[in-house]
Computed example of a mutant assay.
Amino acid sequence: MYNALSLAISLVALGLSGFATLWQLRQARSTSHMTMLLDVALHNIRDRDFQRDQHYVLTRLAQEHEPVVGMDSLPEPVRTMTRNVAFSYEYIGAMVALGLVDSDLALSVLHFRVRQVWTALEPYARAEREIRNAPFLPFFENLYLVSFANPTADFLRSLNLRTSDGNSPSQ
Score class of each variant (00 low, 15 high):
V68E: 11
L74V: 09
L107E: 02
T59C: 06
P151D: 11
H43Y: 12
D72W: 11
N133P: 00
E128D: 05
Q51Y: 00
R157L: 10
I9A: 09
L100F: 06
R83G: 07
T21F: 15
A94P: 00
N84W: 02
L14R: 07
P135V: 11
L61S: 08
S73Y: 10
L42I: 10
P123C: 03
D165L: 01
R113L: 05
L42M: 15
S73C: 10
P138C: 04
D102N: 13
Y124E: 03
E64S: 13
L61K: 12
M95T: 12
A153V: 06
P67R: 11
R162I: 05
E76M: 09
Y56E: 01
G99H: 02
Q54F: 00
E128C: 03
S17Y: 07
E66H: 15
A153K: 00
L143I: 10
D102G: 09
E64I: 08
H43C: 10
E76F: 02
L110P: 05
A134H: 06
G93W: 01
A4V: 13
A62C: 07
R113V: 07
M36W: 04
Y124R: 06
L58P: 01
R115S: 04
T152I: 15
H55G: 08
I45D: 02
E130Y: 08
L25T: 03
R26T: 03
L16Q: 08
H65F: 14
D39H: 14
L7W: 03
F87R: 10
V109K: 08
P151K: 03
V117L: 02
H55S: 13
L161G: 04
L159E: 12
F148V: 12
R115A: 04
P77G: 06
G15A: 15
N84T: 04
Y2K: 13
R52M: 08
P77E: 03
G166C: 02
A120W: 00
I45C: 06
L107H: 03
Q24T: 03
T59K: 15
L145W: 09
S30E: 14
S168G: 08
M81K: 14
L42G: 15
D49C: 00
T31G: 07
N160T: 07
Q116M: 13
A62E: 01
A20P: 01
Q116R: 13
E76Q: 06
T82A: 11
L156E: 05
R115G: 12
M81D: 10
Q171L: 13
E66A: 15
M71E: 05
R79C: 08
A94K: 11
F50K: 04
A28K: 01
V69E: 03
D49M: 01
T119S: 10
L14C: 04
L25F: 09
